[in-house]
Design a protein around this nucleic acid. Structure first.
Lengths: 146, 146
DNA sequence: CCATACGTAACATTATAAGTTACGTGAAAG
DNA sequence: CTTTCACGTAACTTATAATGTTACGTATGG
């Protein structure tokens, strides 16, 4: 008898969540963290880690070094990084799962329906992004201390 | 030579958008609208229409009749239906494309990161849903009149 | 020179909305 | 009563993007 719990498969983009997690770990580390070690933390694959962290490196949030003793380190303080910064760094992925029926509808009704919907979503986007800007990673680190 | 424009494929859930569109059309119609006619409006397949409208029927927003002259009609006024009502009727689908890394993290840092993220998202959810509640379909219909 | 660790291309997997096919049921037209 | 229409629904396929995996190249420290 096999008791295999199929753990909640994510169909949503979890990169932001993962990067927040990693960055705080990095700030606690005294040595560079290897992709493999990070992958173990996040229960995923080293290549996935490298891929996503590469974006953060491009934005100057982390640095990577090769070879012995290499890995990933923070290049800025958690206090200088907001949730928004990380979100932007990974490419500002789509926030919403709801979409419009058509890009450029000719039907007036469709236009009006899309307008109503996107007005609400734009408003919510403002809410999210302003909250993202208001949260520094240092706050997360602080909240994680027992 | 074939010039086939691959029109923007939606990877997001467009059911809400589509249903808003359909319902307003229904309110203007003097006869029941067939799934096929609706599918043509929305540039999709009749079965997709029946599937989604079935939810609205269960909630008492529309009725369907079979056979000659059959199709879909509104059973309530657009003025009595909010965007939120439709959203709920189709099953209150996931609003956000961003997800958390794990359902029940044991890592304190992961917990803190997820908490920060979901706090923002919950706030945004409130924004969206309260806006959905504030918009009646009759407003969309009105906005669509030239 | 060898082990380590990132860089990256190429490919496989997965989940879900969406699309499609097929056939059943019921109702109106004749 | 038979035909046609239109919904009801099961079963299957498709599409897409994040995710996962394999493989190999490159740089670095010992």
């Amino acid at each position: 008898m096999e008791i295999s719990l199929k753990i909640g498969v994510m169909r949503q983009d979890s990169r932001l969540s993962r990067m927040l997690h990693v960055l705080v770990h990095m700030s606690n580390a005294t040595h560079p963290l290897t992709s493999e070690a990070i992958a173990k933390m996040l229960q995923t694959n080293p290549v996935v880690i490298r891929r996503t962290l590469a974006h953060l490196r491009e934005e100057g949030f982390v640095e990577s070094t090769k070879g012995h003793g290499g890995g990933w380190i923070l290049s800025r303080s958690l206090d200088s990084m907001s949730l928004y910064d990380v979100y932007e760094a990974i490419g500002a992925p789509e926030l919403f799962a709801l979409g419009l029926s058509s890009d450029s509808p000719t039907c007036l009704i469709e236009k009006a329906a899309n307008a109503a919907l996107s007005k609400s979503l734009r408003q919510a986007e403002k809410t999210i992004l302003s909250q993202f800007k208001a949260v520094k990673l240092s706050q997360i680190a602080k909240a994680a201390r027992p």
